[in-house]
Nucleic acid binder design. Sequence first.
DNA 1: CAGTATCCCAGCGGATACTG
DNA 2: CAGTATCCGCTGGGATACTG
Lengths: 133, 133
Amino acid sequence: MPEECGERCTETCLCSLEGIITTVSKKWALLVINTIGHYQKLRYNEIMHELHNISPKALSDILKRLEREGLVRREVFKEIPPRVEYSLTEDGRELRRMVIPLLKWASNRHNLNVERCVNRYRRVRLHKIKDEQ
Amino acid sequence: MPEECGERCTETCLCSLEGIITTVSKKWALLVINTIGHYQKLRYNEIMHELHNISPKALSDILKRLEREGLVRREVFKEIPPRVEYSLTEDGRELRRMVIPLLKWASNRHNLNVERCVNRYRRVRLHKIKDEQ
DNA sequence: CAGTATCCCAGCGGATACTG
DNA sequence: CAGTATCCGCTGGGATACTG
């Protein structure tokens, strides 16, 4: 095998795979982050409506995970009927920003464009990230 | 819901999730890419040795997938005994470069460092990406 | 409204044995 | 050496019904 690089190179631990990367790779994660980020604040059923083929359990699961990871904030209002609002934390917004270049690169490689969206996300209205200016 | 942003913002389709992102999120993907990238060229059993708790099937599966995605190149030498060498394509190297900032960011958030590596990757020697200078 | 509670299934990923 | 072939358990994720 070729020799390793010298002592002076910085190392980035793949252990972070256990956290964020694993979370991001969950099926609905980026879609939920993107949707919340797009509207700033959203209620549970509004997200359900936005991603209209997600099950309540799937949404509940991913929201809890995103909250645990510190990417999404959950705000409960003591009202009847109950109201809960979801928004992105600063980290969540930052992640959204960081993932865009990767997505862009991936899109280009496969020459995907609006017309070519024929997969499982087709019916999801907000399945595109709008870059903030 | 708050209003959407104007017509002038660029859109990045999450459909690319179907490709690269899905691949990258596979358990051994980044580890394999990183290992091959680190040594430039590696043979099947060398990778096995490097990631010494991966099964032959798991490695075979992920290598095929990475090859299909155009991230890894497979070179067969007609010899006896057979020799096969794996290396990164330009896209593979580019991906490796692109993921590093994300990993760095993730590592920082969780204050992970060499000492704190107590998870499933612990016994994998090359579970850290060395940044190319 | 904002979720749980259940049930269920496909398929990823692991272990092991075998082969051109 | 570089993989396949098999078997198999786990769990991510979906559908549906129900609740504080």
